[in-house]
Structure formats: C-alpha cells, structure tokens
Amino acid sequence: MEQLDRALKLHQLLLDYRRPISQCLILERLECSSSTFKRLLDLLRDRYQAPIIWDRAARGYRYDTADGRFTLPGVWLTESEAFALLMANSLLQEVQPGLQQQGMAQLLVRIGELLGPQWQSQAERLRVESIGRQYVAPELFLPLVQALFTRHQLNFVYRATSHEAKVRQVSPQRLCWYRDNWYLLAWCHGRKALRLFALSRIAEPATLDEAACEREVSELDALFANGYGIFAGSALKRAELRFSPSAAPWVKDVQWHRDQIQTLKEDGYIHLSFPYADQRELVRDLLRFCGEVEVLSPSDLRQSVIAVMQAGLKRHEAETSVAQPMSQ
C-alpha cells in the first residue's frame, strides 16, 4: 500500500507541474531514494501504462502526451483517502443502515484490495453510536434521495405527530440529518409553503413526472438560520438562561446557537442568551438540566418550563401514592 501511495503522489506531481520535473525535486517531495523512485516509475509504466519519459532537453520527467496530462485507469486512492472513505462509510452505515449493500459494496471491495487484509479490523476501530434514531427503511430512503437529485416532485403519505395520515405532494429541496434523524425539507404544494417532513413518518413515496419547483437558497438557509433547533419561524424571541455551577461542564463548551452570548460569572454560574422561534424543542432540552437551570426570560418560556416540571411532579406523586399500600 505504501508503494502505491507514493506512486499516486508521483503521478500527481507530474500533473501539478507545468514543465518537466527533475529527479532531485521528485526525491525531495516523495521523501524516497533513487532506487525507490525507479521502482515507482516501473510500477506506473508497467502496470498502468503511464507514458512517463525523461525529457533530455528540459532535464526532467513528464508525461509524453500532447497536453502533458494522463489519467490513470480506474479509481485510485491514496492510503489516507481510502481510510477517509472507510470512515465515511462507517458513519453512513450507522446513519442510514442498508445503503452499504445497495451502493458501496463493490467500492469497498476495491478499497479492501488497496489497503490489504488488515483493513477490516482497522475499520472496526471506528465506533459510532446513534441513540434515539428513528428507523427509515432503505427501500424508502433511496427513492426520496433519487427524487431530490433528479429534481422531480413526490407524492407520499405523511403521518404527523397528530397521527392523522394525509397525502402530500411536494418538491424536495434538501435532505437534513439532525439529531440522529432524517428530515426532508420540501415545498408543499398543498400548503404552498416550505415544510419539514420526518422521513420516519413518510410512507408510500412515489416519484411524479412533474419537475420539482426550485426555491432560492437564501430562502432555504433562512428557515434555520435564526431560530433554535429544528422548528422554524420568523417571529423570534430571546431566551435568557442561568445555569448553576454544577451544570457548567456540560454547558460552557456547547454551542446552543450560532448567535449565542455566554457569560461565565465569578460565582461559577453561566448566563446564556440566544434567539428562538418555537419553544417546543427548547423546553425539552432545558428539562435535561431540570434542577440546574433557571429561565430568566421571556415569561412565557419560563411558565412553560414550570408547567412541564409541575406536571412531572404530579405524575410522580400520583404513582408514589398508589405504590405505598403495596409496599406496606
């Protein structure tokens, strides 16, 4: 693998230089000896029919082609590129199981040949744990991706959180991976607005012949640029939060929002401020720090957090009172 890696670097050197390159410069760039360089030349010339010649007039090596360029047959990767692709595949396999068998199996075989028999054990050193992921079947995922890139409209049955299933006709715009789950950002022709659809709630996707309508990139970016989390909105409020010192290790190095303002007080408390458009996701996140965070403002966010905490306490108190006679 090391020899092939250097051979590919030599190939790239010959492409990058507009004039013949001297052997001294090649040895310096490849950090190899003259004998190793000769072996690399033989490898490229014999196995890949690379037309590398010594130009006596220019006293350097070059490709013997009209434009001085040459394309190696097949797909060739350096060792670092191959390992990077292996890592990307491991991540993709965890993010969306099933795609490996359908799209990358043959490519992974080729990478295995490049890296040698030990590559599989090395790849297994990368461990990705996706907690809370909602399952999306590969046979559903791929049609959505194909419609997205071929720019066709889609029909599908969508079951929202209200559990009411409705048929939607959309023009897909973007596929989003957010907090271990897939979402489709699309223009909904029924609502005549951009909507976000959880892939786990989509069923019976069908690609239509109609071309997808295109939305401005600025419009797509603006949907998530200002507010907090996955819920979009244009009417922004600003959350003012105070975290206790015990929560500091889990708060101070976290980016809650791109426009957040964080202040570490002398007493160890952290003051955090950022904009949000919809409080649903924010309230759930704040409950993770239940006894360690205080919502200073706005008042409606503060009251929502208090109401959810009180409801939780009532539920636990009810369960406790029921359980007491059983323990006596």
Rank of each mutant, 00 (worst) to 15 (best):
R302C: 10
K237T: 12
H257A: 06
W182D: 06
S321E: 09
S246K: 10
A198V: 09
C188P: 09
V305P: 01
R242H: 04
I261C: 00
F243E: 09
Q262V: 01
Y228T: 14
W182F: 07
D221N: 13
A307F: 00
A311E: 12
R215I: 13
S304V: 02
I270F: 03
A248N: 11
R284D: 00
Q260K: 01
Q255V: 10
R288T: 02
L220V: 05
R191H: 12
A232E: 13
R179F: 04
Q262N: 01
N226F: 07
A222L: 14
T263H: 00
A235F: 03
N181Y: 15
S299Y: 03
S246Y: 05
Q279N: 06
P205Y: 11
L286M: 05
C188I: 09
K237N: 14
Y228P: 15
A203Y: 15
L208R: 13
T320A: 09
L208H: 11
R258G: 06
T207L: 05
L272Q: 05
R191E: 13
K314D: 12
R201V: 05
L287H: 10
L236K: 04
A225L: 09
Q255S: 05
P245I: 11
R215H: 13
E266R: 03
H189C: 10
A198F: 07
V217H: 06
R242M: 10
E292P: 01
I202K: 11
L236I: 03
V293F: 01
I202C: 13
A198G: 12
H271W: 02
K237S: 15
Q262E: 01
L282H: 07
E204P: 03
A247T: 06
S246F: 05
A311P: 02
A222W: 12
I261F: 00
A193F: 12
P249I: 14
D259T: 01
S273A: 00
A222H: 14
A203M: 15
F274R: 03
I261M: 00
R302K: 15
A186Y: 10
A206H: 15
L272G: 02
G291P: 10
L184D: 07
P298L: 03
A311H: 11
E210T: 14
A248W: 11
G312N: 07
W256F: 08
R179E: 05
L272P: 02
D259P: 00
R315C: 02
D253R: 06
R315S: 07
L313V: 04
T263L: 00
V251R: 12
A203K: 15
R288E: 02
S234C: 07
Q279M: 09
R201S: 08
G233R: 13
V251K: 12
L282T: 06
E214M: 12
E214N: 08
N181D: 14
S218T: 06
Q262P: 01
Q260R: 00
V254A: 06
L286N: 06
Q310F: 04
R215K: 14
D278T: 05
A307I: 00
G312H: 05
M309S: 04
A247P: 05
